[in-house]
Design a binder for these strands. Structure first.
Length: 586
DNA sequence: CTAGGGTTAG
């Protein structure tokens, strides 16, 4: 039910009460009320009404309307200034907020315990720790530093700007801390990748009855588990979310969806998504991403329709996921359609969208079209776009285009290791080993290092990491033995090793040995000997999965009856009963 | 009337 605004003149106080009761989506009603009060002159004269209008427009995400009210008002109090500063700070305009603070300062208006947190927030959002320190010392001078709101906002400011040491010191000095102060510090450790420290604090907060955790803390921890693909710990945290009643929060839910998706379980992701009470944009997007990386293209399209029906407007992430879903399935026309649709939604394509389009076209073998697309891009083509083009060159053995990119790379003087490796691979795939060797040499000459291939697997709350030919694992003996046994069985089933994936100049037998001991194979073998028979083997890899390993896993899933889920730098591969979910299109 | 933290991508 939408509240209707009466046509009769409203007393300013009544207008304030009404504004307070409006939800952020009632923009139209607020504007109607605003125009009434402008005609009567009330909104110019009554600071109370001015302030209410400023904060309503801020809440509904329209800081410039707040600013309009502010500048037309004849009477302003320090609260009007603070409210507008808050509108800017909460709507991604920290610099406007900060300049307003300079005005407040020069007008000698009070900077109290309400204004300081906004000030700190603006510094955090602008990642300006230097100015943040000034806020801190101002808070100390004015005696507000012991205020829990002021303190928490400063902890957050230091944490966000990467000054974890200062965040911790301030946190330790705070006389009173609450769930927000704890959450801010935990978030800081999460941002700096200090998972252990973050988890430590989290456990302490859970144990402390006076502190406790809330949806913010939980979503933060789940996110950490997701980033580190810690499925076991993440699932335990999920249980805690349910126990504490935060299981259906959209923030916690989005993080959980992302956790399960990153850990390879799109089914669990879907279950969590279904249970989210009010699904906000983040929730829809996290599910969209999950469908995209798992190659559930139809589900992604379906979700997009559902989202529209729910009245949620897609943003650039939504479209990025849709485009990558199209790319994984080779659906060029659909991809073009979604790309064009962005304009209808008023979304400017970013460099990622352009790169995704190049990826879509070139994987599908439309390399000349991809080149044309790159050349006509309204922005400087990002490195990822060149990379996508090279991937297409490798798949479709297109030497001409590869040479074209090589020239551009030279001009760009790129040091991205990935690009050089892609070029090498593109030549090697077409059997041009001399060109491949040259590309490798060019890469070495520029001091570009190849990224080491790593594969990891979680077992018993520990992450086991492998590199190619690794013998450092305690179960190394068993792992290699398992691979030998399986190798023989696979050959009986018709598997023939494809050593073209090994680019080094080695003898045939030697090449076979190298490919057979790639990091992903060691990790999968470890899973095979350690996991119970019904548990899927989930392996993560930082670079692209090797073609021969991909074939091997298909055979392995058939002869062992196990499900193998492998995530590489681009997507997930689900190997079941002899085939892969990517349909060998990757 | 004005106050602190976030989800989704890379």
């Amino acid at each position: 039910m939408l509240p209707t605004i009466p046509e009769i003149p409203l007393h300013p106080r009544a207008a304030c009460t009404l504004l307070r009761s409006l939800s952020p989506s009632h923009l139209r009603q607020a504007q109607q009320l605003h125009s009434h009060t402008t005609i009567s002159g009330d909104s110019l004269r009554y600071p109370l009404l001015v302030n209410h209008l400023i904060s309503f427009y801020s809440r509904s995400g329209h800081p410039f309307l707040s600013s309009l009210v502010f500048s037309s008002a004849l009477t302003k109090t320090h609260i009007s200034y603070t409210s507008l500063a808050s509108a800017f700070a909460s709507n991604g305009l920290p610099h406007l907020s900060l300049s307003l603070f300079r005005t407040i300062h020069s007008l000698r208006l009070p900077l109290d315990d309400r204004a300081l947190p906004i000030f700190a927030k603006a510094c955090a959002s602008a990642a300006d720790a230097r100015l943040g320190r000034c806020v801190h010392s101002l808070a100390c001078r004015t005696g507000f530093s012991s205020n829990v709101f002021v303190g928490s906002s400063l902890v957050d400011m230091y944490a966000k700007s990467g000054h974890l040491f200062d965040a911790r010191r301030l946190f330790d000095e705070m006389p009173v801390r609450n769930v927000v102060s704890w959450g801010g510090l935990i978030h800081g450790y999460s941002l700096s990748g200090e998972t252990e420290m973050g988890l430590c604090l989290f456990r302490e907060a859970v144990r402390d009855r006076d502190v406790g955790v809330n949806d913010f803390t939980l979503s933060c921890i789940v996110q950490m588990c997701g980033v580190d693909t810690l499925l076991e710990l993440g699932a335990q945290t999920h249980a805690l979310c349910l126990k504490t009643g935060f299981g259906s929060s959209s923030f916690v839910g989005s993080s959980l969806v992302s956790l399960y998706s990153r850990c390879g379980s799109v089914e669990d992701a879907r279950r969590v998504f279904a249970g989210i009470g009010f699904k906000n944009l983040g929730a829809w997007n996290s599910m969209m991403v999950a469908f995209a990386v798992h190659g559930r293209t139809e589900s992604a399209f379906w979700l997009f329709r559902l989202m529209g029906e729910a009245g949620v407007r897609p943003n650039f992430i939504t479209f990025l996921s849709l485009l990558s879903a199209c790319s994984h399935a080779g659906l060029v026309e659909e991809g073009k359609r979604y790309f064009a649709m962005m304009g209808d939604h008023g979304i400017e394509p970013g460099h990622q969208h352009y790169a995704c389009m190049v990826d879509l076209l070139s994987r599908a073998g439309r390399l000349s079209e991809a080149v044309e697309f790159i050349i006509n891009m309204p922005i400087e083509p990002p490195e990822s776009a060149w990379g996508a083009l090279l991937t297409g060159c490798r798949i479709h053995k297109d030497i001409k285009t590869a040479a074209f990119v090589a020239e551009r790379l030279l001009a760009l003087n790129s040091h991205a290791s990935g690009l050089h490796m892609l070029l090498t691979n593109a030549y090697a795939a077409a059997g041009m080993y001399e060109e491949a060797a040259k590309a490798r040499k060019a890469m070495r000459d520029r001091g570009v290092k190849k990224e080491t291939g790593l594969s990891w697997i979680e077992f018993d709350s520990r992450v086991h990491t492998f590199v190619s030919g690794d013998r450092s694992h305690p179960l190394s003996g068993e792992i290699y033995q398992k691979l030998d046994e399986l190798g023989e069985e696979l050959e009986r089933l018709g598997y023939v090793a494809d050593t073209s994936v090994v680019l080094r100049d080695l003898g045939g037998e030697e090449k076979r040995r190298v490919a057979a001991h790639h990091s992903e194979r060691l990790a999968v073998a470890f899973g095979l000997i350690s996991f119970p028979a019904d548990r899927p083997i989930r392996v993560m890899k930082n670079i692209r999965v090797c073609g021969d390993c991909h074939t091997v896993f298909k055979f392995m899933s058939r002869c062992t009856g196990r499900t193998i889920i492998l995530r590489d730098n681009n997507r997930f591969h689900h190997f079941v009963g002899g085939s892969c979910s990517c349909g060998d299109y990757w």
